Every structure is written in C-alpha cells, then in structure tokens.
Simulated scan of single mutants.
Amino acid sequence: MGKSLGVSLHRALSKLGLCSRTQAQVLIAEGRVRVNGKVVRDVSLRVDLDRDRIVVDDKPVVAERKVYLMLNKPRGLVTTRDDPQQRDTVYTCLEGLDLPFVSPVGRLDKASEGLLLMTNDTHFANRLMDPASHLPKTYHVQVGTVPDATMLEALHAGVTVDGETLTANSIALLRSGGRTAWLEIVLDEGRNRHIRRLLAAHGIEVKRLIRIAIGRLPLGDLAKGTARHLTAEELALLAD
C-alpha cells in the first residue's frame, strides 16, 4: 500500500459503493475493515483501489455496478444521507429499490423540489458539478409578486450578497396571476441557496422553487417522490 497514492480508506469505501464516508468512518473505528489482511483503524490510510484487497466484516468489497438515477424530489426532504437533525431525506424515495450506495449530484435545499440526479459514479458526479463545465440548470420559481421589466432586468444584472456575486444566465416571466408570478431562471453555477438569496436581496418572496432541467436533460413527467434509472440517451444528453 503506497502512502502517497490512491485515496483515503473511508473515501475508498464510499467510491466502491459500500456506504457513505461517515458510515465508513464508523466501520473503520470499530475495527471491521481489513486491508490486505490487516485490521486498519486509520481512516486516512491511502489505498489503491486496483491493487489493495479491502474486506469489511469478512466480505471482500468490490466495485458496484454504475448506477445513474433521476429523482423528482418532493418539498420537505433534505439532500443528504446522514442528517444529524433526523429529518426525512431523499433516501426515503429509494426505499425498496435494489441499489448500491448512491449519492446526490449537487443539492436541492429542503424547501426546493424537482430534478435531482443520484449516482455511485464519482467521476460522472464530479464532472457535472465542476464549475468549469458551466452546465445550465433550469428552475421554475413561483414568487409573491409580479415583477415588471425593470425588476427582471435588475435581477438579471445580479447582486452581491455576503461577498458573493449572485447572477443568472437568464430570467424570464412565464405567467402571472393576482399577486404571484412564475419565473424561469437558468443558472450555470450553484451557490448555496443561490436563487433564494438573489430574489431576497430584491425583497421578493419565493413560494415554490422547482428544478425542471439539468443541461438538456428534462425532469419530464416523472412522478413526485419517485426515482428511475437514466436511459443511455439521457446520459448522452449530459455528456454533450
């Protein structure tokens, strides 16, 4: 085992699809993980996934099949595996499915809805989340006002909040009625609560926020709270 190569042991267990990094740390601390026949309790130990033999509870850990899912995330779920506040997570939508460990690709906050990708392919996930990819994400947002052209122009120009410049690729009025309106907002970056903070800086209340597309991949008619595997054609849309 080379100390300067590979990945840390807890990350290796996650990359191999066994569990989350947090769960891996527990397994390692409990002495349930052996590398090349020796019990290892050091989570930072570097291992080579191609050469080192990793065993958990006397069972060899092998790379799981690659899985790519799309989920229509309901409002009220957090996008995490282990929530210290014991809130319901998006993993409740995967119960009963025969899946290896998968992780969300990016995040949607608890109050947001819509398209969320999940996978055990870390290279795929990292490529999609890399800011250099400029992968556009499209949202439909219900707001508690009907913005005029001047307000839409101001929103598109962006604003600085807590030292961060928040902008959007495009903002358009979809429809309005009474005191509310629906906007279509396209981002090519995903700062924490990006849209909510951008709109709040202009005194605009967000009533609903739904991600309807990632790149050229649409959410489509997938029922809320359900997940399905991406097709080869859909994966190709994300590869373009």
Rank of each mutant, 00 (worst) to 15 (best):
M129A: 14
M129K: 02
R11F: 01
A200W: 00
V143N: 06
V26Q: 15
C19I: 10
K224I: 14
R46N: 07
I212K: 13
V35I: 12
L16G: 04
A213F: 12
P60Q: 03
L9R: 08
R11P: 05
L115F: 02
A181E: 11
L173P: 12
V67P: 06
A12M: 05
T80P: 10
P74K: 13
N72T: 06
V159K: 00
K110S: 06
A223Q: 14
A172C: 11
A227L: 13
H123G: 07
A29W: 03
L9Y: 13
R46L: 11
L49Q: 12
H156G: 11
P74F: 10
T160W: 00
K110N: 02
L69C: 13
R179W: 04
G177F: 03
G96W: 10
R193M: 08
P131T: 09
P218M: 08
S133A: 15
P104K: 09
K3L: 12
L198C: 03
V55T: 10
L27N: 04
L13A: 06
D98T: 08
D148F: 04
L9F: 05
V61F: 02
R107Y: 09
T92F: 02
R87G: 07
V7M: 08
A149R: 15
G158R: 00
L199D: 02
G158Q: 00
L209P: 04
V7E: 14
W182P: 05
L27P: 02
P100A: 03
V78N: 14
T180N: 15
G190S: 13
T180Q: 13
A29N: 09
L219V: 09
V102H: 13
L235Y: 04
Q85I: 02
H140P: 02
D58R: 14
R81C: 12
I214N: 03
K3N: 11
D83K: 12
D188Y: 04
R41Y: 01
A223G: 01
Q142G: 03
I195L: 13
T22N: 14
F101K: 12
D148W: 03
Q25T: 09
E30I: 03
N72W: 10
I212V: 15
